[in-house]
Simulated scan of single mutants.
Amino acid sequence: MKQAVMTEPGKIEFREVNVPEPGENQVQLKIKKIGVCGSDVHVNHGKHPYTSYPVVQGHEVSAEVTKLGPGVKEYQEGDRVTVQPQVVCGSCFPCQNGMYHVCEELKVMGFQTTGMASDYFVVDADRLTRLPEGLSHDEGAMVEPLAVAVHAVRRVRELGGKNVLVIGGGPIGNLVAQTAKAFGAGEVAVSELSAVRLNMAEEVGLKTINSKEEDLKDGITRHFGDRKADVIFECVGSSYTVAQAIEMARKGSTVVVVGVVSALTEVNMGFVQDHELTVMGTAMYQSGDFDNAVELIQAGKVQLTPLITDHVSFEAYEDAYALIDNEKDRVMKVIIDMETSN
Protein backbone atom coordinates (compact mmCIF):
# COMPACT_ATOMS: atom_id res chain seq x y z
CA MET A 1 0.00 0.00 0.00
CA LYS A 2 1.03 3.64 -0.39
CA GLN A 3 2.06 5.72 2.60
CA ALA A 4 2.81 9.45 2.46
CA VAL A 5 5.90 10.36 4.48
CA MET A 6 6.98 13.94 5.12
CA THR A 7 10.75 13.46 5.15
CA GLU A 8 11.51 17.10 5.85
CA PRO A 9 9.50 20.33 5.92
CA GLY A 10 7.71 20.75 2.60
CA LYS A 11 8.73 17.39 1.13
CA ILE A 12 6.45 14.33 0.92
CA GLU A 13 7.59 10.98 -0.41
CA PHE A 14 5.35 8.02 -1.16
CA ARG A 15 6.54 4.64 0.03
CA GLU A 16 5.25 1.13 -0.54
CA VAL A 17 4.72 -0.57 2.80
CA ASN A 18 2.90 -3.69 3.95
CA VAL A 19 -0.79 -3.49 4.73
CA PRO A 20 -1.02 -3.59 8.55
CA GLU A 21 -2.95 -6.39 10.26
CA PRO A 22 -5.16 -5.70 13.30
CA GLY A 23 -4.17 -7.15 16.65
CA GLU A 24 -6.21 -7.76 19.80
CA ASN A 25 -9.06 -5.22 20.10
CA GLN A 26 -7.92 -3.43 16.94
CA VAL A 27 -9.48 -2.77 13.55
CA GLN A 28 -8.06 -2.30 10.10
CA LEU A 29 -9.36 0.77 8.26
CA LYS A 30 -9.47 1.80 4.63
CA ILE A 31 -8.84 5.54 4.78
CA LYS A 32 -11.29 7.47 2.62
CA LYS A 33 -10.66 11.17 3.27
CA ILE A 34 -8.05 13.23 5.12
CA GLY A 35 -8.50 16.85 6.18
CA VAL A 36 -5.55 19.22 6.33
CA CYS A 37 -5.48 21.50 9.37
CA GLY A 38 -3.44 24.43 10.62
CA SER A 39 -1.23 22.23 12.77
CA ASP A 40 -0.37 20.17 9.67
CA VAL A 41 0.65 23.41 7.97
CA HIS A 42 3.00 24.18 10.86
CA VAL A 43 4.62 20.78 10.32
CA ASN A 44 4.92 21.48 6.60
CA HIS A 45 6.72 24.73 7.41
CA GLY A 46 9.00 23.10 9.98
CA LYS A 47 7.49 25.20 12.76
CA HIS A 48 5.61 22.65 14.85
CA PRO A 49 7.40 22.55 18.21
CA TYR A 50 6.52 18.91 18.98
CA THR A 51 7.00 17.15 15.63
CA SER A 52 10.18 15.68 14.18
CA TYR A 53 10.86 14.15 10.76
CA PRO A 54 10.20 11.85 9.06
CA VAL A 55 6.53 11.87 9.98
CA VAL A 56 3.37 10.34 8.51
CA GLN A 57 0.62 12.95 8.79
CA GLY A 58 -3.14 12.59 8.78
CA HIS A 59 -5.32 12.98 11.87
CA GLU A 60 -8.64 14.29 10.47
CA VAL A 61 -10.07 11.28 8.66
CA SER A 62 -13.05 9.29 7.59
CA ALA A 63 -12.64 5.58 6.95
CA GLU A 64 -14.28 2.21 6.43
CA VAL A 65 -13.70 -0.80 8.67
CA THR A 66 -12.14 -3.56 6.53
CA LYS A 67 -10.98 -6.15 9.08
CA LEU A 68 -11.57 -6.90 12.77
CA GLY A 69 -8.94 -8.07 15.22
CA PRO A 70 -9.69 -10.60 17.98
CA GLY A 71 -12.01 -9.27 20.67
CA VAL A 72 -13.73 -6.58 18.60
CA LYS A 73 -17.50 -6.95 18.84
CA GLU A 74 -18.89 -3.42 18.55
CA TYR A 75 -17.92 -2.90 14.89
CA GLN A 76 -18.41 -4.80 11.66
CA GLU A 77 -16.66 -4.77 8.32
CA GLY A 78 -18.13 -1.98 6.21
CA ASP A 79 -18.84 0.35 9.13
CA ARG A 80 -18.06 3.99 8.42
CA VAL A 81 -16.00 5.67 11.14
CA THR A 82 -13.71 8.48 12.13
CA VAL A 83 -10.77 8.27 14.53
CA GLN A 84 -9.86 10.03 17.76
CA PRO A 85 -6.11 10.43 17.10
CA GLN A 86 -4.84 10.60 20.69
CA VAL A 87 -2.44 8.01 22.11
CA VAL A 88 -2.45 8.19 25.91
CA CYS A 89 -0.64 6.39 28.72
CA GLY A 90 -3.69 5.65 30.88
CA SER A 91 -1.73 5.87 34.14
CA CYS A 92 -0.79 9.53 34.74
CA PHE A 93 -2.84 11.86 36.94
CA PRO A 94 -4.89 13.36 34.05
CA CYS A 95 -5.64 9.92 32.62
CA GLN A 96 -6.69 8.62 36.02
CA ASN A 97 -8.91 11.62 36.70
CA GLY A 98 -11.02 12.00 33.58
CA MET A 99 -8.62 14.24 31.67
CA TYR A 100 -6.92 11.74 29.34
CA HIS A 101 -7.07 14.31 26.51
CA VAL A 102 -4.25 16.18 28.29
CA CYS A 103 -2.29 13.04 29.22
CA GLU A 104 1.21 13.77 30.52
CA GLU A 105 2.57 11.46 27.81
CA LEU A 106 0.13 12.50 25.10
CA LYS A 107 1.01 11.66 21.52
CA VAL A 108 -1.13 12.60 18.55
CA MET A 109 -1.25 10.59 15.35
CA GLY A 110 0.36 12.60 12.58
CA PHE A 111 2.63 14.54 14.93
CA GLN A 112 4.38 12.51 17.63
CA THR A 113 3.34 9.11 16.28
CA THR A 114 2.33 7.65 12.92
CA GLY A 115 -0.65 9.32 11.28
CA MET A 116 -3.21 7.94 8.88
CA ALA A 117 -1.90 9.19 5.51
CA SER A 118 -1.89 5.73 4.00
CA ASP A 119 -4.27 3.44 2.17
CA TYR A 120 -4.87 1.33 5.28
CA PHE A 121 -4.37 1.95 8.98
CA VAL A 122 -4.73 -0.11 12.15
CA VAL A 123 -6.07 1.47 15.33
CA ASP A 124 -7.54 0.40 18.67
CA ALA A 125 -11.30 -0.03 18.37
CA ASP A 126 -11.94 2.27 21.34
CA ARG A 127 -10.50 5.17 19.31
CA LEU A 128 -13.32 5.00 16.78
CA THR A 129 -16.49 7.05 16.45
CA ARG A 130 -19.19 5.65 14.20
CA LEU A 131 -20.43 7.78 11.31
CA PRO A 132 -24.20 7.38 10.87
CA GLU A 133 -25.87 6.93 7.52
CA GLY A 134 -26.37 10.22 5.76
CA LEU A 135 -23.00 11.71 6.75
CA SER A 136 -20.66 11.94 3.78
CA HIS A 137 -17.03 10.92 4.05
CA ASP A 138 -16.14 14.60 3.56
CA GLU A 139 -18.20 15.47 6.64
CA GLY A 140 -16.72 12.49 8.48
CA ALA A 141 -13.23 13.91 7.99
CA MET A 142 -14.42 17.13 9.63
CA VAL A 143 -15.80 15.55 12.79
CA GLU A 144 -12.36 15.90 14.42
CA PRO A 145 -12.07 19.70 13.97
CA LEU A 146 -15.72 20.05 14.99
CA ALA A 147 -14.89 18.07 18.15
CA VAL A 148 -12.18 20.67 18.86
CA ALA A 149 -14.86 23.35 18.65
CA VAL A 150 -17.30 21.39 20.79
CA HIS A 151 -14.70 20.88 23.52
CA ALA A 152 -13.76 24.58 23.44
CA VAL A 153 -17.36 25.72 23.75
CA ARG A 154 -18.10 23.22 26.49
CA ARG A 155 -15.30 24.77 28.54
CA VAL A 156 -17.71 27.66 29.20
CA ARG A 157 -20.52 26.75 31.54
CA GLU A 158 -24.00 28.19 31.07
CA LEU A 159 -23.44 29.66 27.62
CA GLY A 160 -27.16 30.09 27.03
CA GLY A 161 -28.15 33.63 26.04
CA LYS A 162 -24.62 35.02 26.27
CA ASN A 163 -22.98 37.29 23.72
CA VAL A 164 -20.10 35.51 22.01
CA LEU A 165 -17.25 37.03 20.00
CA VAL A 166 -14.99 34.73 17.98
CA ILE A 167 -11.70 36.26 16.84
CA GLY A 168 -10.64 34.47 13.66
CA GLY A 169 -12.90 33.12 10.92
CA GLY A 170 -10.81 30.18 9.75
CA PRO A 171 -12.18 26.62 9.92
CA ILE A 172 -11.86 26.32 13.72
CA GLY A 173 -13.16 29.83 14.38
CA ASN A 174 -16.13 29.25 12.10
CA LEU A 175 -16.91 25.92 13.78
CA VAL A 176 -16.54 27.41 17.27
CA ALA A 177 -19.00 30.15 16.34
CA GLN A 178 -21.48 27.70 14.83
CA THR A 179 -21.17 25.44 17.86
CA ALA A 180 -21.68 28.30 20.31
CA LYS A 181 -24.84 29.24 18.44
CA ALA A 182 -26.00 25.61 18.46
CA PHE A 183 -25.39 25.42 22.20
CA GLY A 184 -27.74 28.32 22.84
CA ALA A 185 -25.57 31.42 22.84
CA GLY A 186 -27.39 34.70 22.27
CA GLU A 187 -25.66 36.86 19.68
CA VAL A 188 -22.58 35.34 17.99
CA ALA A 189 -20.20 37.44 15.89
CA VAL A 190 -16.98 36.52 14.08
CA SER A 191 -14.15 39.03 13.68
CA GLU A 192 -11.99 38.42 10.61
CA LEU A 193 -9.81 40.23 8.05
CA SER A 194 -10.51 38.04 5.01
CA ALA A 195 -13.56 38.97 2.95
CA VAL A 196 -13.89 35.36 1.77
CA ARG A 197 -13.98 34.03 5.32
CA LEU A 198 -16.41 36.74 6.37
CA ASN A 199 -18.71 35.78 3.50
CA MET A 200 -18.44 32.13 4.50
CA ALA A 201 -19.35 32.98 8.09
CA GLU A 202 -22.42 34.86 6.89
CA GLU A 203 -23.31 31.94 4.58
CA VAL A 204 -23.65 29.66 7.61
CA GLY A 205 -25.74 32.20 9.49
CA LEU A 206 -23.16 34.04 11.61
CA LYS A 207 -22.83 37.77 12.25
CA THR A 208 -19.50 39.31 11.25
CA ILE A 209 -17.08 42.12 11.95
CA ASN A 210 -14.65 43.08 9.18
CA SER A 211 -11.81 44.14 11.44
CA LYS A 212 -9.85 45.43 8.46
CA GLU A 213 -12.49 48.07 7.78
CA GLU A 214 -14.13 48.54 11.19
CA ASP A 215 -12.59 49.10 14.59
CA LEU A 216 -13.21 45.93 16.59
CA LYS A 217 -14.57 47.91 19.55
CA ASP A 218 -17.14 49.55 17.27
CA GLY A 219 -18.12 46.18 15.81
CA ILE A 220 -18.60 44.74 19.29
CA THR A 221 -20.83 47.65 20.29
CA ARG A 222 -22.79 47.36 17.03
CA HIS A 223 -23.62 43.71 17.67
CA PHE A 224 -23.77 43.52 21.45
CA GLY A 225 -24.47 47.04 22.67
CA ASP A 226 -23.06 48.26 25.99
CA ARG A 227 -23.11 44.74 27.40
CA LYS A 228 -20.37 43.83 24.91
CA ALA A 229 -19.12 40.24 24.72
CA ASP A 230 -19.70 37.86 27.60
CA VAL A 231 -17.37 35.27 26.10
CA ILE A 232 -14.49 35.73 23.64
CA PHE A 233 -12.95 32.78 21.80
CA GLU A 234 -9.49 33.48 20.40
CA CYS A 235 -9.15 31.21 17.32
CA VAL A 236 -6.10 32.61 15.54
CA GLY A 237 -3.21 31.60 17.77
CA SER A 238 -1.08 34.75 17.57
CA SER A 239 0.29 36.80 20.42
CA TYR A 240 -1.48 39.84 18.96
CA THR A 241 -4.95 38.29 18.93
CA VAL A 242 -4.53 36.82 22.41
CA ALA A 243 -3.72 40.30 23.70
CA GLN A 244 -6.58 41.69 21.62
CA ALA A 245 -9.06 39.23 23.10
CA ILE A 246 -8.14 40.33 26.61
CA GLU A 247 -8.19 44.00 25.65
CA MET A 248 -11.69 43.66 24.14
CA ALA A 249 -13.11 41.92 27.22
CA ARG A 250 -15.43 43.85 29.46
CA LYS A 251 -15.37 43.35 33.20
CA GLY A 252 -16.39 39.84 34.15
CA SER A 253 -15.93 38.35 30.66
CA THR A 254 -14.46 34.95 29.86
CA VAL A 255 -11.65 34.56 27.33
CA VAL A 256 -10.96 31.11 25.87
CA VAL A 257 -7.70 30.62 23.96
CA VAL A 258 -8.44 28.09 21.21
CA GLY A 259 -5.74 28.94 18.68
CA VAL A 260 -2.37 27.20 19.03
CA VAL A 261 -0.01 29.90 20.29
CA SER A 262 3.60 28.93 19.59
CA ALA A 263 5.27 32.18 20.70
CA LEU A 264 5.61 33.48 24.24
CA THR A 265 2.85 36.00 24.85
CA GLU A 266 2.77 38.97 27.17
CA VAL A 267 -0.51 39.27 29.06
CA ASN A 268 -1.58 42.42 30.92
CA MET A 269 -2.31 40.67 34.20
CA GLY A 270 -3.20 43.95 35.88
CA PHE A 271 -6.02 44.33 33.35
CA VAL A 272 -7.06 40.70 33.87
CA GLN A 273 -7.19 41.23 37.61
CA ASP A 274 -8.92 44.62 37.52
CA HIS A 275 -11.56 43.32 35.11
CA GLU A 276 -11.91 40.05 37.01
CA LEU A 277 -11.58 38.12 33.77
CA THR A 278 -11.63 34.36 33.43
CA VAL A 279 -8.88 33.36 30.98
CA MET A 280 -8.68 29.69 30.07
CA GLY A 281 -7.12 27.37 27.55
CA THR A 282 -8.67 24.48 25.69
CA ALA A 283 -6.90 21.46 24.23
CA MET A 284 -8.10 18.67 21.99
CA TYR A 285 -11.24 16.69 22.96
CA GLN A 286 -12.71 13.57 24.50
CA SER A 287 -14.98 10.84 23.14
CA GLY A 288 -18.08 12.74 24.22
CA ASP A 289 -17.01 15.71 22.11
CA PHE A 290 -16.89 13.47 19.03
CA ASP A 291 -20.35 12.15 19.87
CA ASN A 292 -21.68 15.70 20.31
CA ALA A 293 -20.08 16.73 17.02
CA VAL A 294 -21.86 13.94 15.14
CA GLU A 295 -25.15 14.85 16.85
CA LEU A 296 -24.80 18.50 15.80
CA ILE A 297 -24.21 17.49 12.19
CA GLN A 298 -27.16 15.10 12.19
CA ALA A 299 -29.43 17.75 13.69
CA GLY A 300 -28.42 20.24 11.00
CA LYS A 301 -27.14 22.68 13.62
CA VAL A 302 -23.65 22.92 12.12
CA GLN A 303 -22.83 23.24 8.43
CA LEU A 304 -19.58 21.67 7.25
CA THR A 305 -19.82 21.44 3.46
CA PRO A 306 -19.52 25.21 2.80
CA LEU A 307 -16.15 25.17 4.60
CA ILE A 308 -14.66 22.61 2.19
CA THR A 309 -13.10 24.70 -0.56
CA ASP A 310 -10.71 22.25 -2.23
CA HIS A 311 -10.10 18.57 -2.94
CA VAL A 312 -6.68 17.11 -3.76
CA SER A 313 -5.79 13.54 -4.68
CA PHE A 314 -3.61 11.49 -2.33
CA GLU A 315 -0.81 11.41 -4.90
CA ALA A 316 -0.86 15.23 -5.04
CA TYR A 317 -0.62 15.67 -1.24
CA GLU A 318 1.96 18.48 -1.51
CA ASP A 319 -0.46 20.47 -3.66
CA ALA A 320 -2.75 20.85 -0.64
CA TYR A 321 -0.05 22.82 1.13
CA ALA A 322 0.67 24.90 -1.97
CA LEU A 323 -3.00 25.85 -2.13
CA ILE A 324 -3.05 26.83 1.52
CA ASP A 325 0.17 28.84 1.26
CA ASN A 326 -0.61 30.57 -2.02
CA GLU A 327 -4.35 31.17 -1.64
CA LYS A 328 -4.76 31.46 2.11
CA ASP A 329 -7.37 34.22 1.85
CA ARG A 330 -9.59 31.89 -0.22
CA VAL A 331 -8.86 28.40 1.07
CA MET A 332 -10.63 27.10 4.16
CA LYS A 333 -10.56 23.31 4.37
CA VAL A 334 -8.63 21.11 1.93
CA ILE A 335 -9.64 17.44 1.75
CA ILE A 336 -7.27 14.72 0.53
CA ASP A 337 -9.21 12.19 -1.56
CA MET A 338 -7.92 8.65 -1.16
CA GLU A 339 -10.17 6.99 -3.75
CA THR A 340 -7.65 7.16 -6.60
CA SER A 341 -5.09 5.27 -4.51
CA ASN A 342 -5.01 1.46 -4.47
Rank of each mutant, 00 (worst) to 15 (best):
P306M: 04
C95T: 09
Q76W: 07
S52R: 12
I34E: 01
V260P: 00
V261L: 02
C235T: 03
A141Q: 06
P132A: 12
V312G: 07
G38E: 00
E327C: 04
I12T: 03
K47R: 13
H151D: 00
T305M: 15
P171L: 04
Y75K: 04
S136K: 07
E64N: 12
G90M: 08
F233P: 03
V148S: 02
R227H: 13
Y240L: 11
A201C: 13
T66E: 12
V190L: 08
D119A: 15
Q303F: 09
C89E: 05
A117N: 12
F14G: 03
T265C: 06
C235F: 01
V267H: 05
M6K: 00
R155H: 09
A245Y: 03
V27K: 05
K212A: 14
V331K: 02
R227W: 12
T66C: 09
F183W: 02
G160K: 11
P145A: 14
L135W: 07
A316L: 11
Q178C: 06
R80D: 04
V312S: 12
G90F: 11
K67W: 05
T340A: 15
T278L: 04
E214V: 15
F224V: 02
I335E: 08
Q84E: 15
Q86H: 08
V236W: 04
V123Q: 02
E16V: 10
C37N: 10
P306G: 02
V27R: 00
Q76D: 12
F290I: 03
H137N: 12
G46C: 05
P94W: 11
I335V: 15
L206F: 02
H151R: 08
A283S: 13
G219Q: 06
K207N: 13
L106K: 03
I308W: 05
E339T: 11
M142S: 01
Y120D: 03
I209W: 02
G38T: 06
A249Q: 09
K181D: 01
L165N: 07
V56Y: 07
Y53F: 15
D310M: 01
G10I: 06
V61C: 14
H311K: 11
G186A: 09
K228V: 08
T282P: 01
Q298P: 05
L135D: 02
E133D: 15
V188N: 01
V312C: 07
S191T: 07
I335P: 05
T66L: 01
V242H: 04
E158Q: 13
G225Q: 06
S341P: 07
T129N: 12
G38R: 03
A177P: 05
M280S: 05
K2N: 09
V257M: 06
L106P: 00
R130C: 11
T179F: 11
A141G: 10
E105D: 14
D274M: 13
D329A: 13
T265Y: 02
H48S: 03
K33L: 05
I172R: 00
E77V: 15
P22Y: 09
H223L: 08
M109S: 08
C37F: 07
R80A: 10
G219W: 11
D138C: 05
Y240N: 10
Q96S: 11
V258T: 01
K67E: 08
